[in-house]
């Protein structure tokens, strides 16, 4: 309600809001609506936080498109479910900003590693493998270079970019790797490696992963060694039991 005046009005209104129990809604309705508006920059600060993580996306779509997230059901779900704003924004964004948007979403995910529930071998949660339209990485780097060291300020004063994200059928395989301090490395990788890590996801039995490695081109007698190498490199992690 602090961030979305339309939702605050909906809470005070008569329409159904299944996410709120009757008592919760009653307590919220008792708040003077003016008291929710005393900090006029609260939403702008939240938008700013997203601009820092999604500068190319904002340059491609415009800042109002980022701002719109805070009026979405996806944002409310993020709050209700104790989610991450940056990750929820990436999910909500989908393909709107093409490959650059997906890369920035992958960076947001890699920076917030959460161990999955799967067993066997899993893609390291600090690593995000992705396949995006060819030229997306170059487009992202161009956009970020144009925005300079303070993207939010540039975005606040600049016109929207005329550039459109690449949309062709060809894909480029990428790997995002986040370090413990939030630093990120981003680069191209081999298609089979990216596909294998995507297949591993939250965890697969080693036998399934071995079979997939072979299907993707590894020699059967090398597959185990390949997986061991990926574990040693930190791209795959072993999960219990």
């Amino acid at each position: 309600m602090h961030l979305d005046p339309a939702y605050a009005a909906a809470v005070r209104g008569a329409g159904p809001l299944p996410e709120l129990a009757e008592r919760e809604r009653s307590l919220l309705r008792a708040v003077d609506p003016r008291a929710l508006t005393v900090d006029p920059y609260r939403r702008a600060r939240a938008v700013h936080a997203l601009l820092e993580e999604y500068p190319a996306t904002a340059a491609l779509l415009g800042v109002p498109a980022v701002d719109a997230f805070f009026s979405s059901a996806a944002f409310r779900t993020c709050v209700f479910e104790h989610g991450s704003m940056a990750m929820s924004f990436g999910t909500w964004l989908g393909g709107q900003a093409g490959g650059p948007g997906r890369i920035e979403a992958a960076i947001a995910h890699a920076r917030r590693p959460r161990p999955g529930a799967g067993e066997g071998l899993a893609c390291n949660p600090c690593v995000a493998p992705l396949r995006v339209p060819k030229g997306s990485l170059a487009c992202l780097e161009r956009m970020r270079a144009r925005l300079g060291p303070d993207p939010a300020t540039t975005l606040a004063t600049a016109r929207s970019a005329r550039e459109k994200p690449p949309r062709g059928p060809d894909r480029e395989p990428l790997l995002v790797e986040a370090g413990p301090g939030g630093e990120v490395s981003l680069g191209t990788a081999s298609e089979p490696l990216v596909r294998l890590l995507q297949f591993a996801g939250d965890g697969r039995p080693r036998a399934e992963l071995t079979a997939e490695a072979v299907r993707l081109g590894a020699e059967p007698h090398e597959a185990d060694e390949l997986l061991a190498g990926l574990v040693a490199d930190g791209l795959l992690v072993a999960r219990g039991p």
């Binding site: 602090h2 307590l27 609260r42 600060r45 939240a46 700013h48 936080a49 997203l50 820092e52 993580e53 993020c78 709050v79 479910e81 104790h82 989610g83 991450s84 704003m85 940056a86 917030r112």
Partner: peptide
């Protein structure tokens, strides 16, 4: 913070 403790989530509101 709203949601989980994360970048951009920090604020300060009173308890319910």
């Amino acid at each position: 913070h709203l949601g989980r403790r994360d970048r951009g989530h920090m604020l300060l509101l009173p308890p319910i």
